[in-house]
Design a protein around this nucleic acid. Sequence first.
DNA 1: TATCAACACGAAAACGTTGTAGCTTACGTG
DNA 2: CACGTAAGCTACAACGTTTTCGTGTTGATA
Lengths: 347, 347
Amino acid sequence: MKQKPTLKVIAKELDVSVSTVSKALRDSKEIGEETKNKVKAFAKLYNYRPNNIALSLKNKKTKTLGVIIPEIVHHFFTTVISGIEHYANDKGYNVIVGLSNESFKKEVINLEMLANGSIDGFIISVAKETLSVKDFHHLSETIDQGIPIVMFDRVIDEIECDKVIVDDVKTSKKAVEKLISSGCKHIGIISTKDYVSVGRLRTEGYKNALQSNGIEVDPDLILKIDDKFNSDDNLEFLEEQIHDYFKKNAVDGLFAVNELYAITAMKVARQKGLKIPDDLQIIGFTDGVLSKHAYPPLTTISQHGFEMGEEAAKLLIERLENTNDEEEPFKTTIVKTDIIDRETTKL
Amino acid sequence: MKQKPTLKVIAKELDVSVSTVSKALRDSKEIGEETKNKVKAFAKLYNYRPNNIALSLKNKKTKTLGVIIPEIVHHFFTTVISGIEHYANDKGYNVIVGLSNESFKKEVINLEMLANGSIDGFIISVAKETLSVKDFHHLSETIDQGIPIVMFDRVIDEIECDKVIVDDVKTSKKAVEKLISSGCKHIGIISTKDYVSVGRLRTEGYKNALQSNGIEVDPDLILKIDDKFNSDDNLEFLEEQIHDYFKKNAVDGLFAVNELYAITAMKVARQKGLKIPDDLQIIGFTDGVLSKHAYPPLTTISQHGFEMGEEAAKLLIERLENTNDEEEPFKTTIVKTDIIDRETTKL
DNA sequence: TATCAACACGAAAACGTTGTAGCTTACGTG
DNA sequence: CACGTAAGCTACAACGTTTTCGTGTTGATA
């Protein structure tokens, strides 16, 4: 086992000073050609690489981004991470991932654990519990300490920072209008409780679409699922609620604010003998594996998670590397969405 | 914006020495009660937290694990990451994620980028390209430098290190025998090329099952997909191959070495008018969202990714924290599998 | 021969910690 | 009174870098 050589051991071995070695490796013109070559050869031979930690300490920069998300077993978040990784690696940054599991406490712990010098900035999508309890002190404190944060998807209006979102209202409106124009008369929505920003906004878009098409909004057609935690855990609960919903309402069009709700609705509809898309048309939100491989394949809105990730990383790194004295104003990037036409809607 | 206070500024502020502050905060008995209280109060007020980087440098430990996986947009890998995170966080470790995208080069870069002091050890599932080119120098060099590696799922026999795997042969045998016992006469397998260890082993299990049940192995029934890269990209290619396969062979039972192959096979079968499970029974490998939400829900083998992740983290952290002088021998943990009975098989 | 660049290198500080060793002061003991 | 010692604190080194500021040698110039 050969230990990683340090400047010190190279210096001793070659009988020069540490500074000489350092400078030689960085090709400083202070050092003579001969010495440089000697040092470089030796360094190559022993596969010298500067110690990152020491550099971090010296530069007060870790070249590492902290990404905190509610859960990783979730297609959308993984595509975002891919995007972040892609951009970050390109710029020489690493990515350290923290999982909040939708828990406020774990989110706080993760933030604190990483804010002690381990990372230069955060990219975060806030936990449902945090949104629900409305306690954002950990976020504002982090920003106060000079650690920039970029929020994506689930953002908080009260906190000033860079954000990457999708135009939820407009996009949802577009989706629901698609249902309207393909003949649906009774369109319902399966959403989340209002404290989840995206759920609220998408519901708003749904209402907008109906109203501007002269259709009255029927509150009964709006189903708000209360899943505070990991959605996979209470799948039965979800099915039950959708069952009840179908029992009470006869819809021929359905807009679901995420894939899982859409897929589950399809499943329940099938059990009730409804043909898709003939009896019931469905559009989901967030294009993931489920939509693509569902039967029938689900028409859905692509949020372009990869681009969102890239954009978030870009905003963060730009802020980190901004050397101007004046603070850049905070930006909110809106990533475009697309409706992916598949087989749960008619043309 | 208040900057994070350091020991130095606290010391100056309270007019004591840096060491005194350090010791006071760690409750050393060298320091008088009065001073301790004063320091602690001040530290609390200014929300002092020791700088992680400085600690890492001093202790030569980062309390960070590097996880390198082929792709993150993949249910199995994300469950493994969850497991790793869970165990690691519990032990005070952070997790830094690197994506190889199935590329040898990116795997090497990731390894090198993190091996410079950023992490204490690696958990890795090797890229397909690495397996295919059989170049493992980056792995052995890392181990040589004293950085332990734990491999999971896709492992390399030639490299000595801790490993976490599933008994692919035995598990596959069990699955195929299930097909046999539920009446299948012509059982096929959709696997990967042999350089992917899990593909090879699962094919072996398939053959074993047939042989020990007196069925001759028909090489035509073994389809080996050559997807060197991200499987989502060449979905059409996959479908095509399966189409051809069905054209040439009349199977009534199918074992697929992963979810995607199984789901795609179902799709193609449906197009050919085959009823599942009546005309064709299918079992997949790796229980993910796809299997669960497929139509019909796919009978599949659960690899328990979460447990694999936990186990990998456990092996790594145990090795890192092992203070005995004698090297622990390398362990290979075999995580149990289960067949999740759903609706693509008969009873 | 004295002066001065240019050159090649080294010493030391700094980043934030911790641990060891050392230094006062006060007090008790012989 | 001299000595030992305990309490309470500080100085310093070290982790691995980079960078600023020397410093000594050489050779050329006045």
